[in-house]
Write a protein that binds this DNA or RNA. Structure first.
Lengths: 132, 132
DNA sequence: ATAAGGGTTCCAGCCGCTGGAAGCTCAAGT
DNA sequence: ACTTGAGCTTCCAGCGGCTGGAACCCTTAT
């Protein structure tokens, strides 16, 4: 099948698929006319990458996961190690964002939001703390 | 003061400060020898940007906030609008990551993580659901 | 005199795409 | 048979937000 069809079936834009081929993540056969030719198994791999990316794995991590996916003899422990590390990264990211949310939410709460130039958000950002 | 001192006092690397000047976010005076020369007020602005960036505002948003910061007559409503939108973005990001966390956590939980090639994480990523 | 530790400029690269130009091929309609 | 339009190919450039490195200048201490 052509790249457009593979794109529709995998949920990845054609541009992205070509890019993945460019960086050696996934290869594709070529038809006689020079068009890329994708098998169902290729589409499986594309979907695999699509899901992995959308779960927050980097392209390099996808490369690892893909080789584990392709290697029928890999130990599940290898995969688990990658996924567990990713989980920890996500937890850190959530904690960081929650901290931000709290600080920013606090600033917004204390801003009366009218036409007066007095603004706790600006003051907070500028580091000049006020007495609340 | 020189860029290195301004960097230390603002918490931004010199490279980043030069970059900000490059994109017209902040300007600096020049000393006779061609070195950038920062006033205390400049450092305030640098810190302001540093804080805003670390709170998740984009450089473009920092540009807006900075002009509101500099403009003593601005309405606090303008600032509040930007901050509130940012808050919503952060909430969306947290929700998204929480979803990821749940899905990935689920996969990791069900992976026995031993030497067997059978791996629910890989299966989950490949979209072939099993009956767990 | 010289060496270290600033500063300056500019150019290139990181990630993960994405847009656009120029040209080819294919399928359908007239 | 010819045209049109969609889809394919390649390559080059740019996004955001820095960051590293090269090559050079300036200042200060020994």
């Amino acid at each position: 099948m052509n790249i457009g069809t593979a794109a529709r079936q995998s949920g990845l834009p054609p541009k992205t698929i070509r890019y993945y081929e460019d960086i050696g993540l996934l290869t594709a056969d070529r038809a006689a006319n020079g068009y890329r030719d994708y098998s169902n198994e290729d589409v499986h791999r594309l979907r695999f990458v699509q899901r992995s990316r959308s779960l927050g794995f980097s392209v390099e991590e996808c490369r690892q996961l893909l080789s584990l996916y392709t290697d029928r003899d890999r130990a599940s422990a290898d995969v688990k190690a990658i996924a567990t590390e990713k989980l920890a990264q996500i937890d850190r990211k959530i904690a960081e964002l929650t901290g931000l949310r709290e600080m920013l939410g606090h600033l917004v709460e204390h801003c009366h939001g009218d036409a007066r130039p007095d603004c706790p958000i600006i003051d907070g950002l500028s580091g000049r703390s006020r007495d609340h």
